[in-house]
């Protein structure tokens, strides 16, 4: 278990997860592997139901009860170099790991705070659960963090959650997420359900925080502009698989997978008029009985004969940029025509 690179904080190897349902087993995550480097921001993008959230929940073992990890490991490297498989942690170790090493900001922060407890109480609860019971020190640290997320620290700290607006709650939750200086912060749709100006403020705050506190981020979004702005690395998730992963610029300007290419084409362009929005035809596949071969082949414009037989692997093409496709050349050609 000691074979982790020094600068990697999280390494997911060949992770597969199924949900047991009445209608059958939903293969929500299949053979997912990736590495998260220290201080790096990674975006998971993809349609709803593609398995982004399942992947992120498995990192703190917060999957629903009917989920089962069928294979793989999630290796976490502490600052002192010690490596642990999160999937093997005892309940007590897991409780300590959560938030102290890896915090998760869930989708919809509107209800993330207990309505009957003051914000201060909830910060103190979090600190005390991890053996930090000096209220004064917690207060001081919390006020600093609230200031960092550009809130009026004293007012927010002594407020009840219902006295805060949606954007304020989101920022308070961000401040809470780094209270224990975790190495990793997972953000699930950090800007959904917020108005456009608040979204902007949250992005600025996040960039600011990451610069000052230097944690790694995994964030889930279907907002590609957010990914472009925040991420160092982008991974496209389709039908429970990472089908393309690479540095943000490569992904946006030289995408190799037809699905990523399609997603990007679907984004409305600001610089020229468009009468009809482009979309990827078809619907996401049924994950109980997924298509054979490449799971994207029924919707793919560049489909080849072999696509419904052979499963393409995530192979290395241009350094760190990987894509699982048999017909990358066609995507490259298509982009040339487009420009």
């Amino acid at each position: 278990m000691g074979k982790m690179k020094d600068d990697v904080v999280l390494q997911v190897d060949d992770l597969s997860i199924v949900y047991h349902t009445i209608r059958g087993d939903v293969k929500a995550t299949n053979n997912v592997s990736f590495e998260l480097r220290k201080g790096e921001a990674m975006a998971l993008i993809g349609e709803s139901g593609s398995g982004k959230t399942t992947i992120s929940l498995s990192l703190i073992r917060k999957l629903p009860k009917n989920a089962e990890v069928t294979q793989g490991q999630v290796l976490y490297q502490r600052e002192n170099g010690e490596v642990q498989d999160i999937l093997q942690l005892s309940n007590r170790q897991l409780r300590e790991f959560r938030w102290q090493d890896c915090a998760m900001v869930f989708q919809g922060a509107q209800n993330a705070f207990n309505p009957v407890l003051k914000v201060s109480k909830q910060f103190e609860d979090t600190a005390r659960a991890h053996g930090w019971s000096d209220k004064k020190a917690v207060r001081q640290r919390s006020l600093e963090l609230l200031k960092l997320v550009r809130l009026d620290p004293e007012r927010v700290y002594d407020a009840y959650p219902h006295e805060l607006s949606g954007g304020m709650k989101q920022r308070t939750l961000l401040a809470l997420s780094v209270l224990l200086s975790p190495q990793i912060v997972i953000l699930d749709e950090p800007t959904t359900a917020l108005d456009i100006l608040t979204q902007r403020a949250i992005i600025d705050v996040l960039n600011d925080m990451q610069e000052k506190l230097n944690f790694s981020i995994i964030f889930i979004s279907h907002d590609l502009s957010l990914a472009a702005e925040m991420a160092d690395v982008v991974a496209t998730v389709y039908a429970g698989e990472i089908i393309e992963i690479g540095p943000v610029n490569d992904m946006f300007y030289e995408s190799l997978h037809p699905y990523t290419f399609g997603l990007l084409a679907a984004v409305p362009k600001l610089d020229h008029e468009q009468d009809v929005l482009t979309s990827i035809k078809g619907t996401p596949p049924n994950l109980i009985n997924p298509p054979s071969g490449c799971k994207f082949h029924p919707r793919c414009r560049f489909v080849l004969d072999r696509c419904n037989v052979d499963v393409p692997a995530l192979t290395e093409d241009l350094g760190s940029h990987l894509a699982a496709c048999w017909n990358k050349e066609a995507v490259v050609e298509a982009r040339k025509e487009q420009v």
């Binding site: 959560r98 869930f106 609860d125």
Partner: peptide
């Protein structure tokens, strides 16, 4: 959500 978050907070 807040119960879920409380669990995630350890």
């Amino acid at each position: 959500d807040y119960v879920n978050v409380a669990e995630a907070r350890g």
